[in-house]
Simulated scan of single mutants.
Amino acid sequence: MHVISQLFSDYPIFSAFKETIYLTLLAAVFSLLIGTGVAVMRVSPIRVLQLIGSGYVNIVRNTPLTLVIVFCNLGLFIQLGVAVANKNSDTFIDTNNFRLAVLGLSVYHASFVAEAIRSGVNTVPMGQAEAARAIGLPFVKTLRHVVLPQAFRGAIAPLANVLIALTKNSTVASVIGVAESSATMKEMMENRPDVLVAIFGIFALGFVVLTLPVGILLTSLSKRLAVKR
């Protein structure tokens, strides 16, 4: 116990997990927005939109996340000069890297969100969409008022899996210098190799605390909101 308390006093473990939570929440919101748009494109009656949505999912989903994150830093920022923070700020590098990590995580996980929502759309009976069209509702309103509300209810469980994966995958952000939990763990391992088991235990338990309640809550919610057939 003395070793563990010493580690907590010597290193910003709580701040690192706070950064991980913040990173996960922002990426979750943006990936949900992007993924919903991509899912709509995939079920659109317009062939061009279907091809764009399908291409996005197939390309991004099969690209390593590390490559996506590194591209956001080396490709967008270093090569193209795209900055997503105020260059005059004293914390420009840290803020810019954090926001680029959010961008990379969002773009990557949006492909999985899109597939989760599309699976939810497939659970909605075809007759409901046909009835909506029969009364004159256009495609967009049919999606908004009839299909998507039920699709989200059916997609809660797969979306929960995406959120859990996103939480764990946020550790990849350390490759571009984001000071989240895995970056702190690496620093601790380099400085205190004599207590590796304790360090692994702390961070493993931390991620269990972050992901287990989310899984339980969303699984329970999916059962309660499941569309009765």
Rank of each mutant, 00 (worst) to 15 (best):
G75M: 05
I69G: 09
L74C: 13
G37K: 02
P125T: 06
F200Y: 15
A155L: 04
G81S: 08
L103V: 15
A151G: 11
A114M: 12
T95D: 15
T95R: 09
L65I: 07
G154W: 00
S170I: 02
A131H: 06
N58E: 15
R133N: 08
A85H: 02
T66Q: 01
A198R: 00
V140A: 12
V147M: 13
L67S: 13
G127H: 08
K186E: 06
S44Y: 06
I93T: 15
V84M: 11
V195D: 01
D194N: 03
A132R: 02
E19P: 01
V178T: 08
V214A: 04
F207W: 06
F203P: 02
L49V: 04
L23D: 05
I202W: 00
A183V: 14
F112G: 05
V124T: 11
I78N: 11
A16S: 13
C72Q: 13
I156E: 12
D194T: 07
D10T: 05
T219V: 01
L225T: 11
A129T: 12
N86G: 02
A179N: 14
V102D: 05
Q79R: 13
T123C: 10
L212H: 09
L217Y: 12
A101N: 01
I156R: 11
R153V: 08
L205F: 14
V175F: 08
V29F: 15
L159W: 10
P213M: 04
A110K: 04
L32Y: 04
T66C: 00
D94I: 11
L26R: 09
I4Y: 01
V140W: 13
I69W: 13
L137F: 04
M1P: 10
A27K: 12
D94S: 14
D90T: 10
S5D: 08
L212M: 13
L49R: 05
V172I: 14
L218C: 06
R192F: 00
E130W: 08
T142L: 03
N58M: 06
S111E: 13
R229K: 14
A129G: 14
L105Q: 08
P12H: 05
N62S: 14
L65C: 05
L218G: 09
